[in-house]
Design a protein around this nucleic acid. Structure first.
Length: 568
RNA sequence: UGGGGGAUCGUCUAGCGGUAGGACGCCGGCCUUUGGAGCCGGCUACCUAGGUUCGAUUCCUAGUCCCCCAGCCA
């Protein structure tokens, strides 16, 4: 059963796949694939592709989506990434079942296909230098020229190619090229390189090979070997499609997959390219691949973003061919929406201000009932200790309150969440700096939460922790990684100059309610009135460290920004 | 000035000749023991110019603008 919310939204690829399936094309099979190269970590842009490919396979009966490592370049790939990619795909919530493959497993078959091409006179060994090849290729507006080696005999090609394989030729001395058309207006068709010599150890095949297939050769054939029906990739491969089709046709591969292109995901105020992400990690501009500021799946996970939120986001942004930059706020919306429904609420004070309740009995401890999740009655309640000395948020007190400020101020009343209404009677300041050091308040015993006594209303309810019971914590607040958008980065000489110097703010001396002492790393909470936070694995039994996943929407902050100049 | 693609609210996205819809965002209001959530209302878009048609975002023509391609990366 599908509801309007859960039914996938229409997009041109889904429509096409569904139509093919209904028409019985490819024998009614739908086989997609997610083909990462194991040379980097997955990010939310990959999530869009993963959700599309696995989603499609899950939607049609008998569909399948393969996870295939496109590992044809020994110099950049590493098993570390193979492991990480699998973990991330699983974490996102997708399953390739037993369909995990490596392009490197096809090296032998690919070699045979190359031989087929040579025998048909459709490929030749070129011995031009890399510089010459570039020169012979022509430019966007000028046609290329045939290489003098283009007319080598089949036997010579076969012999040379075999010798390339055995390792007797140095890197760069020869390549295998498709024989297509050096005059083609599509540069990809000007005798594209199919194989290059690389005397490098491959993480899976070791030194068995000295030649490695290029993407344009390996990819279509890997798809064909696996019986992929719909080979979905991004827009920049659009003008490789004629070559994709040529390779599949000329090698006479059994299956003819269809390549379909869509626009990759871009997000405001972050970077998505592998190169830039790698640069951030290598230059230690961030703490690692799982730095919560990064749009990597590991970064998002560590930040506390649930995979469900990422999937909902991917479904919502749709799939189209126009270039797009999605606002980060949209991602944040789906994170809040998900977390609102299921995060337990707790109280935590980020910037503590001491409050003494002058008329509250010294030494007394009340266990107040607090609701765990107003969105989910089954989440139950918990006890929170209440005492004479508390801490509240510095932001929740203003000595000289601006208009619309409903919180505590001298002479004003406010409710303590799950507790009593209190009134500020005096302010203690540091005699030298003038900084507010503590507040003295009185509480109204008639106003205890849930009591049947007088139910007075006050304008605001604020969170608090008991001084004697609070647990110290450190909290990391995150801001956008970038001050500018990706679109503008290309022209910047050094894009790292656009990094936000305040993307990470570490708060120490925070105080959280005692129930949090039992939390395990990865656990997500809503700190009431502040945002969603996730216990970081860096936490030890002595120190709790939380990452702010996303703040709550803050109507007051918005109001204050537009109405009043900041007071502090 | 070669080839391949793309242009719909501020941002994503639907539409397939018949009142341009949704989401985010934004602006009001209601509600609220989270200034959260929720609820109600509002805002803003078919790149331009012609043509075909009773009727064009949709079809045609001519422009304009944006993206991608000259790795032995993928």
């Amino acid at each position: 059963m599908t509801t309007p919310e859960s039914s996938p939204s229409s997009n041109f690829i889904r429509d096409l796949v569904v139509a093919d399936h209904a028409a019985g094309k490819h024998g009614g099979r739908v086989v997609t694939r997610f083909p990462p190269e194991p040379n980097g970590y997955l990010h939310i842009g990959h999530a869009k592709s993963i959700a599309l490919n696995f989603g499609l396979a899950n939607e049609v009966s008998g569909g399948a989506c393969h996870l295939r490592f496109d590992d044809t370049n020994p110099t950049t790939e590493d098993p570390e990434y193979v492991q990480a990619i699998q973990e991330d795909v699983r974490w996102l919530g997708f399953d390739w079942h037993s369909k995990m493959f490596y392009a490197s497993d096809y090296f032998e078959q690919l070699y045979t296909f190359a031989v087929t091409l040579m025998k048909k006179g459709k490929a030749y060994v070129d011995s031009l230098t890399p510089d010459q090849i570039r020169e012979y290729r022509g430019t966007l507006t000028e046609p290329g020229r045939d290489s003098p080696y283009r007319t080598r005999s089949v036997d010579e090609n076969l012999d040379l190619f075999a010798r390339m394989r055995t390792g007797e030729c140095a890197d760069g001395t020869h390549v295998l090229r498709a024989k297509i058309d050096m005059n083609s207006p599509n540069i990809n068709l000007r005798d594209p390189i199919l194989y290059r010599i690389r005397h490098a150890s491959h993480y899976r095949t070791g030194t068995a090979w000295h030649i490695y297939p290029a993407y344009d050769f390996a990819h279509p054939l890997s798809d064909a070997i696996e019986g992929i029906t719909h080979s979905i990739c991004t827009l920049e491969f659009e003008d490789h499609r004629p070559l994709y089709d040529w390779v599949v046709a000329e090698t006479e591969a059994l299956h003819r997959p269809q390549q379909i292109e869509f626009a990759r995901l871009n997000l405001t105020s972050t970077v998505m390219s592998k190169r830039k992400l790698l640069e951030l990690v290598e230059k230690k501009l961030v703490a690692g691949w799982d730095d919560p500021r990064l749009p990597t799946l590991r970064g998002l996970r560590r930040r506390g973003v649930p995979p469900e939120a990422i999937r909902a986001f991917c479904e919502h942004i749709g799939v189209a061919k126009r270039d797009a930059i999605v606002e980060m706020q949209l991602l944040e919306h789906f994170i809040r929406e998900d977390l609102n429904k299921r995060s337990p609420r707790v109280m935590a004070v980020l910037r503590p201000l001491k409050v003494v309740l002058d008329n509250y009995p010294e030494g007394a401890v009340e266990e107040l009932d607090a609701v765990n999740n107003p969105e989910d009655a089954s989440a139950g309640t918990r006890k929170v200790p209440f005492t004479r000395t508390l801490y509240i948020e510095q932001d929740d007190f203003r000595e000289d309150p601006p208009k619309q400020f409903f919180r505590l101020a001298p002479g004003r009343e406010v409710r303590l969440r799950y507790g009593y209404i209190i009134k500020c009677v005096s302010v203690t300041k540091d005699p030298h700096t003038g900084a507010i050091t503590e507040l003295h308040c009185t509480y109204d015993p008639e106003t205890k939460s849930g009591s049947s006594q007088e139910q007075r209303k006050v304008k605001a309810t604020i969170h608090w922790v008991s001084s004697a019971h609070a647990v110290p914590a450190a909290i990391r607040l995150y801001q956008p990684l970038l001050l500018t958008n990706q679109a503008k980065l290309a022209v910047d000489q050094d894009w790292t100059q656009s990094l936000n110097p305040h993307s990470l703010e570490l708060l120490t001396g925070c105080l959280v309610e005692p129930s949090l002492r039992a939390a395990s790393p990865g656990a997500r909470f809503q700190f009431e009135r502040q945002g969603y936070f996730c216990l970081d694995p860096d936490s030890s039994s002595g120190t709790l460290i939380f990452n702010r996943t996303v703040s709550l929407k803050d109507a007051w902050a918005k109001l204050e920004k537009t109405q009043q100049p900041p007071q502090r």
